[in-house]
């Protein structure tokens, strides 16, 4: 029992991270039908900015987080403006190749700014781990889950209650119809980029204290986030959540009950299986009206 609980805690912590990354993928896919393969690099940027602002400059926690997310979102906006919008024939394959190129470019930038070393920062608070029935829940895990909940609820409110959010949703459903009623689609796409990369930055922020941040950390995280998004159903907020947590928990249980050598394999096998049974993911966009 104690073991299973410990596996679950480990899985939920990782799952929350995957979910935040997956939301970024989904959000962008929703507005632009584009898979941003540079998304993992924005997570890396978030993590390393956090190292600089919180770890080296010793800013207080909240300003450091806000500053980091702002920086990453700005980088996302610049990326959209320079590399995506300026494409003459924005066919999906061209854009995807551009994002792959951008990921290599961003990794290079990360290496030039922060060097090749890994960095670590202290946990957001120094509480001892919570002891629940013999299993330890780390204080940073609680931070991760709390920040994740705030972000998820915030996004939901933004999409459902604000005019801008509704406009973005409208633009996602039909660009042309949105344009006819006067929604500036370019601005909405740009905002989607900003929000998506901000979510990437947020993932980087919460992950920085539990793992080591380095310029090459983004690729694997991006891949896992992408899998989570696919698993849950690309384009759906709730799908991303379910996919992220499912992937995290399955990985942890895979380690516990199968083999740690097959950790990634267990999760990916299940992904294949689910996609075979439900090609659109657990919550496919046909079932829900996207966001």
């Amino acid at each position: 029992m104690q073991e299973i609980l410990q596996y679950l805690f480990s899985g939920i912590t990782n799952g929350a991270i995957y979910a935040v990354i997956a939301i970024g993928f989904s959000m962008l896919y929703n507005s632009t039908e584009l898979i941003n393969f540079a998304h993992g690099e924005f997570v890396m940027l978030g993590s390393l900015c956090m190292v600089t602002f919180f770890g080296s400059m010793h800013l207080p926690l909240v300003p450091a987080i806000i500053l980091t997310i702002t920086c990453v979102a700005l980088a996302g906006l610049v990326f959209e403006r320079l590399a995506i919008r300026s494409v003459k024939h924005p066919e999906p394959i061209v854009l995807i190749i551009i994002t792959v190129g951008a990921s290599i470019f961003l990794r290079g930038i990360g290496m030039i700014i922060w060097g090749k070393d890994a960095y670590s920062i202290p946990s957001f608070s120094s509480h001892p781990p919570l002891d629940i029935a013999g299993a330890k829940l780390l204080s940073q895990s609680i931070w991760i889950i709390a920040i994740f909940l705030v972000a998820a609820v915030g996004l939901q409110l933004f999409y459902k209650k604000t005019l801008t959010g509704k406009a973005m949703e409208a633009n996602a459903i039909s660009k042309r119809a949105a344009w006819i009623v006067g929604i500036p689609s370019k601005l909405m796409v740009m905002m989607a980029f900003g929000l998506s990369t901000a979510m990437g930055g947020l993932a980087g922020v919460i992950i920085a204290p539990i793992t080591m941040s380095s310029y090459d950390m983004g690729t694997m995280l991006g891949l896992k986030g992408f899998c989570a998004a696919m698993l849950g159903g690309l384009g759906s907020l709730w799908g991303a959540l379910i996919g992220g947590f499912l992937l995290g928990i399955l990985e942890a249980l895979g380690v516990g009950f199968v083999s740690s050598g097959l950790k990634d394999a267990t999760a990916f096998l299940l992904l294949l299986f689910i996609l075979y049974v439900r090609p659109g993911g657990i919550i496919s966009s046909a079932d829900v009206n996207r966001f």
Binding site: N14, T211, M220, V255, G256, G261
Partner: peptide, 20 residues
């Protein structure tokens, strides 16, 4: 004898198994 991935962010699951 357990393993972990070079980019893993958390190894408590492996440790829990070793601890048994």
């Amino acid at each position: 004898s357990e393993t972990y991935g070079a980019k893993d962010t958390d190894m408590t699951a492996q440790l829990t198994k070793i601890r048994q």
